[in-house]
């Protein structure tokens, strides 16, 4: 199994290296283990996460692409769809069978035609437009709905943190 997964990951890595989508860098930082990638995602423009560079870890199963990878931000995040431990909750990362929240149709879930690039783009769009129907972080979802200013402030702080800049 792993051989095929390795080939496909290699192809994806190659594509992501040669034609990277803007603001996204992903690849295995240590090729001893090709199934663990690290991604850098730049916060989308015009959002509260703008300019932040958020590191995340992608862990691929040995039967990739039949099963989705797991994605987890390794920096502090405050977002309705990101658990407090950094795990990302988007439907594209859920295997077709399981439905933890009971709201997605299987059409939104993982399928082998998805790719790392699509996942990361989805995450970028998730950063831009949180989906507060399925909140992984209830506090963040509440704040996003009710107190957007406060949310933006926290996001700004996080952005500065990722850039190693001190808060003014």
């Amino acid at each position: 199994m792993a051989g095929r997964a390795l080939k496909r990951l290699m192809t994806e890595y190659k594509q992501l290296t040669l034609n990277p989508p803007e603001g996204i860098i992903a690849g295995p930082t240590n090729e001893e283990n090709f199934f663990e990638w690290e991604a850098l995602i730049m916060g989308p423009e015009g959002t509260c996460f703008e300019c932040g560079v958020f590191p995340a870890k992608l862990i691929f199963p040995p039967d990739y692409p039949l099963s989705p990878p797991k994605m987890q931000f390794t920096c502090e995040m405050f977002h309705p769809n990101i658990y407090s431990d950094g795990r990302v909750c988007i439907s594209i990362l859920h295997a077709p069978g399981d439905d933890p929240m009971g709201y997605e149709t299987s059409a939104e879930r993982w399928s082998p035609v998805q790719s790392v690039e699509k996942i990361l783009l989805s995450v970028v769009s998730m950063l831009a437009e949180p989906n507060d129907e399925s909140s992984a972080n209830v506090d963040a979802a509440k704040m996003w709905r009710d107190d957007r200013d406060q949310f933006n402030k926290i996001a700004e702080k996080l952005v500065r943190k990722t850039l190693n800049l001190s808060y003014p």
Binding site: P44, E108, V124
Partner: peptide
């Protein structure tokens, strides 16, 4: 287009490459 479409549609530059 699959699920990816929904997420990337907001970014004009991405939707083409998708």
């Amino acid at each position: 287009q699959g699920p990816g479409w929904r997420y990337v549609s907001w970014l004009p530059s991405f939707s083409v490459e998708q």
